[in-house]
Design a protein around this nucleic acid. Structure first.
Lengths: 342, 342
DNA sequence: TTGAAAGCGCTAACAG
DNA sequence: CTGTTAGCGCTTTCAA
């Protein structure tokens, strides 16, 4: 039988039950200095007996909420799941809990999500915020310790965790060149971001593609479909590219999700992968490893990135004010979706 | 240039700036009864001018935080993304914000995640909590308005939103039978849940599979691999099933994620889909529609479920205490992974 | 219609 | 080492 919503146990209940002051209880739960072992024990017992759990909101009014906010554009991208896992694992050994909030496809929604986090008094914010301006990020960072993922700009107000997208894109294009491809096309992403274009990973990947092509005397073969990093985006981008004449022999999609759509478009056109068209992606999501997809992709360790972001954020919460930039080095995972030109 | 962390604007700042009482400001932001239009206007102007945003944690100490907590076992399952989208869309027209927290693979972690939500003073909880006992869910529901997703038990303390898993499983098995299959195998999920087994969706799907087989005089052909609803689980389950002799001509995986792994195992065994083995899933995630996967699956509308959960929760927050059960009716989406026996 | 004042549960000075 | 007390930002009686 369930009793009707009874009042939650408070610190005062614990104090009176243990016959000590409220302060004593507070000190014990904060592991603060200045409590005798005997008192600590009594308080612990009372907490245990009453099933007391401190209320984060109330703690937050004076101190910390032990909550960190994680803003993600959306949770459908499996790469973000790796980041979340890495963060969760790191936080496991701390008193902090991570809460996720979904940003969205527009700057307004993204910004509102971050506001919502700040309004809830999180102790710090980790975000994948591709749309905001640097000024906006710094505005956030001024109010709360902040770590920004997947953007390349330097700011002295927040830390960044990112992948070396230039190295990653270079791996892919060099791989395709080594296989003998010349007509290599690229699918990139576009949005209404207010960031400096060259700080956004999709632009870095696209620019690197163009640079490497040019360095190999293939400036004339550069073909870029401006689309989106999602399935439909990849599908449409690939359709456009395949309709060109002569058509590309290889497609480098800037993200696995787009590569999935590209694979669909290639199949639909009655072409074989990789015999007719090689396809490569980026992110090395779990799906890339599925036998029927078997996608060559760039691996950036999302779990490491998530863990690093957590560590940097806690350091900032503890008082660090100098900015740190953490970069992971990507590797190429070659699979069956890319092959030599025939 | 960024100013150093300045103090956040509070309700008192707004009050003094608008030359009214703190109470008046509070009333305005709550749309409460008893403010003259003139005062409302002055307060609005001051709020605007100062960029004031109420602090949810402080509001929560007396009233509401306008935050609802969503607990998901993990965010890798794309089906959950549909739920989140549906919920987010519903909440858009309200003052509430949803926060997600990742549960995990063990009862302890799952329970802790829900505790974390309650400790943060959310106004209500929506959860996909397959591991908890009914008693535990009622304990939570006694403290906070609660909606439970994807479980079938009846409780008078919380609302439920679920799919008619029996109907869904029946659709799949009947479809395979109609194609002429007799040796139809099933991949199910196992965990250390404390729920009554028959309330868990994977057990309902498995039991329905067995019932329909029996009803068609195929009791002797029943073959169930007890594995897990994820890629590796599906892979291993399918390998086990395919090693049996005679091997099944069709595999019904209880979830798309498992079906993906099953497809991999079938390919690896050098068998063709659907010529040698038909494969069907459940959830109709976006991946099922990819041409190279092309998986027959059961569609349950995740967005509708998410939206319904949000609606029911807000009703509870507004005071409803009677329990509501919301069920969506699944449909079968036939694709190329299932075909007639040859 | 308005505002003063008493909390909500907790932390942090500050005394003892 | 221990306890008293003043807030944190907001909502909510309750008078005026």
């Amino acid at each position: 039988m369930v009793a009707p919503g009874r009042r939650r146990v408070t610190i005062a209940d614990v104090a009176s039950h243990a016959q000590v002051s409220v302060t004593a209880v507070s000190k014990v739960i904060r592991n603060a200095y200045g409590v005798s072992p005997a008192m600590r024990e009594r308080v612990r017992a009372a907490i245990e007996e009453l099933g007391y759990r401190p209320q984060a909101a109330a703690r937050g009014m004076r101190g910390r909420t032990f909550t960190i906010g994680l803003m993600l554009p959306h949770i459908r991208n499996p790469f973000f799941a790796d980041i979340v896992d890495g963060l969760a694992e790191y936080l496991q050994s701390t008193d902090y809990q991570a809460f996720m909030i979904q940003g969205g496809a527009t700057r307004k929604v993204e910004s509102r999500a971050v506001d919502a986090l700040m309004d809830r008094q999180v102790d710090g914010i980790i975000m994948v915020a591709p749309l905001a301006s640097k000024a906006r990020l710094e505005e956030v960072a001024r109010e709360k310790p902040t770590v920004v993922l997947a953007r390349h700009e330097r700011s002295s107000y927040y830390d960044t965790v990112s992948d070396d997208d230039e190295a990653g894109a270079e791996l892919v294009v060099n791989h395709l060149l080594a296989l003998g491809h010349r007509r290599i096309a690229h699918i990139t992403h576009q949005d209404d971001s207010q960031a400096r274009p060259s700080d956004l990973l999709h632009n870095i990947r696209a620019a690197t593609y163009e640079r490497v092509m040019r360095e190999h005397g293939l400036a004339g073969e550069i073909a870029v479909a401006k689309s989106f990093y999602h399935e439909r985006g990849g599908y449409e981008g690939a359709r456009e590219l395949l309709s060109r004449s002569p058509r590309p022999t290889a497609i480098f999609a800037g993200a696995d999700q787009a590569a999935l759509g590209a694979l669909a478009a290639v199949h639909e056109a009655g072409l074989a992968v990789p015999a007719d068209v090689s396809v490569a992606g980026y992110d090395n999501t779990h799906l890339a490893a599925l036998p029927c997809i078997d996608l060559t992709s760039v691996d950036q360790d999302g779990a490491v990135m998530g863990g690093a972001a957590g560590k940097l954020l806690l350091e900032r919460i503890e008082g660090r004010t100098s900015a740190v930039r953490f970069t992971v080095t990507p590797t190429l995972v070659v699979r069956g979706s890319t092959g030599p030109t025939t």
